[in-house]
Design a protein around this nucleic acid. Structure first.
Length: 584
RNA sequence: GCCCUUGUAGCUCAAUGGAUAGAGUAGCGGUCUUCGGAACCGUUGAUGGGGGUUCGAUUCCCUCCAAGGGCACCA
């Protein structure tokens, strides 16, 4: 069955053709108000001027045409020139049965078949904390990856990490100073728990970063240290390698908790890129394009004169001859294309570097126009605390792990009261609900805007939240636990449908369209909106109508609705990177 | 100063240029001898100001006001 919207759009094109109007795109809307049908279209209004006819007359002709379709049971032309139409009970039931048969496959389409897409996200830096900004990037990136996979794209995940650069110099400098003050050796720290090591690193970074700004001698030493790191000076090899390893191990543990699937050997991304490896490539690349006039020397540095293109100038190679983030990123772009012959390369980062990325893409378009054309940058909002922006320099941050632990505490409080859960299952359930609560609170808003991270809001497990959806699923499971579902439901046996049943049927049928829309617009929050709406409808239905204690045919239908709802909630939550639980 | 983004209910957010601007939360009032109350129902409450384009504007354009981010060797 073609997607119903496309199917009806084709019918409308036919109708328009008959009155001598050829159009390629017909927009089908989903009216919020139920009185305006399952779907509606305003093409008549849009075209009235061009074809010089009364909109209502065009609308009537369209309505006549689609009414003839077997999936439509009512179509009407109204007021200024809208056409509203309703799907048949037959279609809705067929679609719902389809959900139960296809299970996790329901919602999959071939929109991006044979498309290779590389998506870079998370990008935490070794030697620095993994804070809730990284958690956000990871959540968004993973969700987009899953969305595209559901649309049949060949997806590879990439993680780009800054293992060289000023922040590393600041950290190592701070680490050395800190160890000296505490009278600890590197071996002493190595003995600590991973979490403790990471905390120590975080403190070291804060120390280095603060003194870099306030102490000239520290600043000079850090700058020198930065050079040593690039040069792989043996003096610092040991401390560098250890610190880097601690961080990377720690990051993998977080990905695991967040529910990313391990791809190989405990690693969760297909490609890991390090600044230390792409830096040289970027450096060479920039140098070869100086003679061609793309980059220029200025005040001892190599810059890209962005003003020429209505942007701003940025330094690509600093006066010490080291590549800045900009040059490294150019090297990265080339490296990615060598590793994976992608059709599209998506880069997910914080939106504070939107301006910088424009400059970068401009420079890339002059060097490798083919790659620049295939690259999309998504700047997600910054995660802010109610008090303002986070800063790992001042230590005013919420780490990913502390957020998880704090949320989990709240979840546990509720679970401990529940008599439905065995003691041994508490831990796993709490973990899944916790991750669900956090991810959902990050994804339910549009990607571009900043997220004011209110702990109280995230910890709230009621209303429009991840746990609400997980609860809906568990509730369905509870009903279904001891009931056999009978698939042989004949539409003719279903007489009168209750309003609550109809609204559920309609909502269920809209899932595949929603997935496409969310994928095309890079908008996981559309999935959130949809799932919340579906769950509300189910819970209302549940409240009003008995499912099990009712006569045979009705029970069949209601069990089908319950099964289908559970399946769609599960499939949708998967797209958000959230797992379901049978009991909670 | 220049560039970008954002102003919707007390707060946090929705609304492919469509019809009566939706939710959550907070407040107030209800639902429970029923399949899971992390639930359900009702109620109070909003498009920053001013122009313009359009049959129709929260959405597009201009302007003013306000907030945030970026603007040369950090990422």
């Amino acid at each position: 069955m073609p997607m119903i919207k496309d199917h009806i759009a084709a019918k409308i094109r036919d109708a328009l053709k008959k009155i001598g109007c050829e159009v390629t795109v017909v927009e089908i809307e989903e009216p919020v108000n139920r009185a305006f049908g399952d779907y509606s279209t305003s093409v008549a209004l849009r075209l009235a001027k061009t074809i010089k006819q009364q909109p209502l007359i065009i609308a009537k002709k369209i309505a006549e045409e689609i009414l003839a379709d077997k999936y439509i049971h009512k179509a009407e032309a109204v007021k200024p020139g809208f056409v509203n139409f309703w799907l048949t009970k037959d279609y809705l039931l067929k679609q719902t049965k389809d959900i139960v048969l296809k299970k996790t496959e329901y919602g999959k389409t071939s929109v991006y078949e044979n498309k290779k897409i590389l998506i870079e996200f998370t990008d935490p830096n070794p030697f620095k904390e993994f804070h809730i900004g990284h958690l956000y990037s990871n959540t968004v990136g993973e969700s987009l990856a899953r969305l595209y996979q559901t649309l049949s794209a060949d997806i590879k995940r990439a993680n780009y990490q800054g293992d060289v650069g000023m922040h590393v110099a600041k950290s190592i400098w701070g680490l050395k100073k800190q160890m000296k003050e505490d009278g600890l050796s590197l071996a002493d720290i190595e003995k600590k728990e991973l979490n403790e090591k990471i905390k120590y690193l975080g403190k070291s970074y804060a120390l280095g970063a603060t003194l870099y700004e306030t102490d000239q001698q520290a600043k000079d030493e850090i700058t020198q240290l930065n050079k040593k790191i690039y040069d792989k000076n043996p003096e610092i090899t040991d401390i560098y390698e250890k610190g880097r390893r601690w961080s990377l191990e720690y990051f993998e543990k977080i990905y695991d908790r967040l529910g990313m699937k391990a791809v190989h050997g405990g690693k969760h991304f297909d490609f890991y890129y390090f600044e230390s490896l792409v830096g040289g490539k970027g450096l060479d690349l920039v140098k070869t394009f100086i003679p061609k006039g793309i980059f220029e020397k200025s005040q001892g540095a190599i810059i890209f004169p962005g003003e020429k293109y209505g942007l701003h100038t940025r330094v690509f190679i600093n006066s010490l001859g080291l590549p800045t983030y900009e040059a490294k990123e150019l090297g990265l772009a080339i490296k990615k294309s060598e590793d994976f012959d992608y059709d599209q390369s998506i880069v997910v980062t914080g939106n504070e570097i939107n301006g910088y990325f424009k400059v970068l893409l401009k420079s890339l378009s002059l060097i490798r126009p083919d790659l620049a054309a295939k690259t999309v940058h998504i700047g997600h909002g910054m995660v802010k605390l109610p008090e303002g922006k986070m800063s790992s320099r001042t230590g005013k941050i919420i780490t990913g792990l502390s957020l998880i632990e704090q949320t989990k505490k709240e979840v546990m409080k509720i679970i401990e009261k529940s008599k439905k859960i065995d003691l041994k299952d508490r831990e796993t359930i709490a973990e899944k609900v916790t991750v669900g609560a956090i991810k959902y609170s990050l994804l339910k808003n549009g990607i571009g805007h900043d997220v004011i991270f209110d702990m109280k809001e995230t910890l709230s497990l009621e209303g429009n939240s991840g746990p609400y959806l997980q609860y809906t699923y568990a509730r369905c499971q509870s009903v279904l636990r001891n009931c056999q579902l009978d698939y042989n439901l004949n539409p003719d046996d279903i007489g009168f449908l209750e309003a609550e049943e109809v609204s559920l049927l309609r909502a269920l049928a809209k899932y595949p369209d929603t997935v496409c829309l969310a994928g095309n617009n890079l908008s996981p929050h559309l999935i959130c909106n949809y799932l919340y709406d579906l769950s509300q409808k189910f819970n209302y239905f549940y409240q009003k109508l008995p499912i099990i204690k009712t006569e045979k045919q009705t029970k069949r239908l209601r069990l089908l609705l319950t099964t289908a709802t559970a399946q769609v909630v599960k499939n949708g939550l998967f797209l958000l990177g959230i797992e379901t639980v049978d009991r909670m």
